[in-house]
Design a binder for these strands. Structure first.
Lengths: 250, 250
DNA sequence: AGGAAACTTTGACCCAGATCAAGAGCGAAC
DNA sequence: GTTCGCTCTTGATCTGGGTCAAAGTTTCCT
């Protein structure tokens, strides 16, 4: 348990994305509420590959991703695994009112979490209604994203699945770095081929083949294995089988 | 728009399951809050097969399913469709804070909805915090169900998918009718083969074949096309690839 | 009752993606 | 530098479930 204390100078700038702190609290809380939130807050780092929480573990905290990427994973006894959520900076981990974790939470990259001890956090929810409202909004967004993903898993071809994933990561990345010029954008893929396969309900071989195919057809190009350049975002969306440009949330 | 007025004698007994009325309001609201909720409430019937809301429609109301079954469906331009939610009595339709619908809502069977006009309902949420808390709980449950379903869609075989769906319907049915004796239970399938296919990410032919196979292997037996008898619920869960008996929510 | 429409089953065949297998690139450790 | 351990790519082959087609069943309408 790498609980750490960061001085304010050390708090990563990404913490502006900490949804609870920034969006629910700062904008609408009274100063004393802010203080109470500060009291139950601590930062925690996790190394890439480590499991933060195992399915069934007692959850002592809820948290917000500050930097890095985490994933929610479900595993069957025979080892088949499905990633059911991709948590980028600003996303929320844990569930008020639930004692034990429903999924494995795995650090896909090195991770900094902003944690809140669960019990006092739950008390805060009861006392400060707009936090519950903010959490409701966030949860509804997640639900939309999960349902969007059900369409991907249930009905899209392998190529469309890959394109969908790239579009999502591209979008979320662009939102953070704001460098979308004329439809071209680039980003580092934070997932291994295997993690992509687990997210998409494919095998890693199929992921690799389809990425090669998208490269051959100049929908994307790669620098190294992980850095992706998308010359035309619309084209990528089209490959993903997405009608609208809007839509996807995750 | 079949808005109707039911006298209290006509209100279906299933309305006890109306989540908002029963669980959030009745148990914790002050009488005057109850009155306010009554004011913005009306009942509505929808015939089987009718679409209640189209994707993109302005949502003028939120609602709770009183009797019948509705489904949330997403469709791609080329016609591929994926059901992303199955709404049984007690489940909630709509989303406070969202202007337009994100999915088609289709009446799978004849339906009675308990509707609340959206704007005043949103006001109520702000004024009476425990409604937001109750909605948060419900939404988190739905999110769990959606994620459970992602595992089904992404990693299970056709046979496991069918068994998973039967297990869910059996569970929800048993919860309502309380007739689970010694592991045997039976129920009417409220879905056509095509609807099952849309839910499971399969074709209707595959659904039909796998149901025949489960029948041949005596995991289930049928009376007519729709009435299912499950001699051993554990066996069914096992076919579904489910480790735990608990778990699934929807 | 007769007939149309909707739903379901079953068969024959095919293909997208899984599986099995072999290497290739690439960094970290010694 | 060499070796070990990952991650990734590519090829060969197999198969679960899709597609196309036809016929059986149920429901409902006239």
């Amino acid at each position: 348990m790498n609980q750490i204390n960061l001085t304010s100078a050390q708090i990563p700038s990404g913490c502006q994305n900490c949804a609870i702190r920034h969006q629910a609290v700062c904008s609408r809380c009274e100063p004393d509420e802010l203080d109470r939130l500060e009291e139950i807050k601590y930062y925690r780092t996790v190394e890439a590959g480590q499991t933060v929480v195992w399915t069934g573990d007692r959850m002592e905290f809820v948290a917000s991703v500050v930097t890095g990427i985490a994933s929610l994973t479900q595993t069957m006894e025979d080892g088949r695994t499905q990633m059911v959520g991709l948590l980028l900076p600003g996303d929320f981990i844990g569930r008020p009112g639930r004692e034990s974790a429903a999924y494995d939470v795995v650090a896909t990259t090195n991770l900094v979490l902003c944690c809140f001890r669960r019990k006092p956090f739950e008390n805060m929810i009861v006392q400060t209604p707009h936090i519950a409202q903010r959490l409701l909004e966030m949860t509804l967004d997640e639900l939309d994203a999960a349902r969007e993903w059900m369409l991907v898993l249930g009905r899209k071809t392998a190529r469309e699945k890959i394109a969908s994933l790239l579009a999502i990561v591209a979008r979320r990345n662009a939102a953070l770095t704001l460098q979308g010029t004329d439809g071209e954008l680039q980003f580092d893929l934070p997932l291994t081929r295997e993690a992509m396969a687990d997210y998409l309900g494919l095998t890693l071989e199929t992921v690799s083949r389809q990425i090669s195919a998208l490269k051959r057809d100049e929908v994307i190009s790669l620098e190294g294995k992980r850095h992706v350049i998308v010359p035309d975002y619309r084209r990528l969306l089209n490959e993903a089988g997405d009608d609208s440009d809007g839509g996807m949330v995750i």
